[in-house]
Design a protein around this nucleic acid. Structure first.
Length: 220
DNA sequence: ACCCAGGGTCATA
DNA sequence: TATGACCATGGG
């Protein structure tokens, strides 16, 4: 990773120095991480927390119980996180997958090369959700590409504007150590950075990346 | 009254 | 392959 022109590493260092460690999903069970990864699709994390709290309060944060739950009951519990009909169905599919693969220990025993395509084959799990599950629940070193990553790095002129998911992921993989901890922090730092500078006020004096912020080009 | 949020699927051209 | 519509709640 110590090459002469490792732009990704530079950005990582700037973000880390600015915001510090993010410790995403450290205390929760891997299963809860999987649920969160699914429920957060295009959704504010605060709303996801409400849905997960609702599941806990109903004593429903469990693969067997979610899988066996009446769909309309599940919909009502997760309603605050939006798209609740889609997500209730997707959540049950994920839970049946989880059970069918012998739970956490079964998933942990599977190579990423086998597990990844099976996750993608599930209806409602695309590239980002699959990678989030693999990275944040199962500790596999995959770089999660989200809308923030696309915008910020394209805006910095580091990645091609129209690059697809696989190409962007390859770009990061080529510049970073294949280390799940680094990928974990990096993606979380990107999200944290976007939250602070997305459409916030023009306080870019404090922006550790300078020219990347949304309000530079979002309207113009 | 907008705009958008830690996406994904499907229909169309 | 590449857009557009749709899903839906809650906070700014």
């Amino acid at each position: 990773m110590g090459g002469a022109h490792d732009s990704a590493v530079q950005i990582y260092r700037l973000l880390y120095q600015a915001y510090g460690p993010q410790h995403w999903w450290p205390v929760d069970s891997p299963f809860e991480v999987m649920v969160g990864a699914l429920l957060t699709q295009n959704t504010n994390w605060k709303n996801v927390e409400k849905a997960i709290t609702g599941l806990k309060h109903a004593d429903m944060l469990d693969a067997e119980r979610i899988a066996a739950c009446d769909i309309s009951t599940l919909e009502e519990i997760i309603r605050p996180c939006g798209y609740f009909r889609q997500k209730a169905a997707r959540l049950q599919k994920l839970c049946r997958f989880y059970i069918g693969h012998d739970g956490l220990s079964g998933l942990q025993a599977m190579p990423t090369g086998v597990l990844h395509p099976r996750l993608l084959a599930l209806h409602g799990i695309g590239p980002e959700t699959a990678d989030s599950i693999l990275l944040y629940a199962l500790d596999r070193p995959l770089f999660v590409i989200d809308a923030y990553t696309r915008r910020i790095f394209a805006r910095l002129g580091l990645t091609p504007p129209g690059a697809g998911y696989a190409m962007l992921q390859q770009w990061f993989n080529g510049q970073l150590p294949r280390d799940a901890h680094v990928f974990n922090e990096f993606h979380a730092l990107i999200v944290e950075h976007a939250k602070r500078h997305c459409r916030a006020k023009p306080d870019c004096i404090a922006c550790p990346l300078r020219q990347c912020c949304d309000h530079f080009t979002l309207q113009n």
